[in-house]
Amino acid sequence: MPNLRIRSTIVTGVLGVALVLAGCGQQAASTSSGSQAVTGDVTVFAAASLTETFTRLGEDFEAANPGTKVKFNFGGSSALAQQLNQGAPADVFASAAPANMKQVTDTGTITDAPRTFAKNSLQIAVPKGNPGRIAGLADFANADRKIALCAEQVPCGAASRKVFEAAKITAAPDTLEQDVKAVLTKVSLGEVDGALVYKTDVKAAGDKVEGITFAESSQAVNDYPIASLAKAPNAAVAKAFVDFVLSDKGRSVLSAAGFDTP
């Protein structure tokens, strides 16, 4: 028995080394050839609000480029920016805010000029049936209403502040949530009467949440920038993926999710 186990370990080890060597060869070939066909893995760090659309885009990209595999790390844009600055191995960064993208370009982790691939604006989110009878942004100043906003430290919170400033309304929130999903949880469970989130989030939340458009939302349109990393392990595929997101195909997926596209 012990002998067998040792042998199987050796076999596994040899196989592993062989595979790694094969992978290196393949990658070298694909980058040096300069041809249109890209292969290999690409790791994309994307804002949590892009989870649905980017998962879809990833599948489409893989279908269009056989031999590629797109791996995602979804999270808060600022957390992702920090991970990237700490040397997380990624090829592409898609941020929900220019500010977080700037954190990464400032350190030289990204040297390409980021490109805006989507725009998002705020909408009032209310539970199904609007039990708190929220009519517009003015109701957010009413202390009797339970109101959830994003914390100012996160992009949707910063946008909310801009909107209230433009509308000259002092909001009376009951909670400042750490991200959009947390806000939507409270809306869909009926814990709050109203909240401000992005249009795409209302759409993604399904039929438990209803959206109400308001005029001042144009005061805080949020740009989503994307760029490939300077030290991308697989630069060719990274570039191809960025291009794919900005292509017509990419736009149609993004608009279907409620994004405005540039």
């Binding site: 600022s78 959830a148 009951d174 400042l176």
Partner: peptide, 27 residues
């Protein structure tokens, strides 16, 4: 805490919540 009680300074913002939100803008 943040899911059930939310986050509002002086009411429900405990240190871990403050840390998390600070991390968003000012590590």
């Amino acid at each position: 805490t943040i899911t059930f009680a939310g986050n509002f300074p002086g009411e429900t913002t405990t240190m871990p919540l403050a840390v998390y939100l600070a991390l968003e803008t000012d590590p």
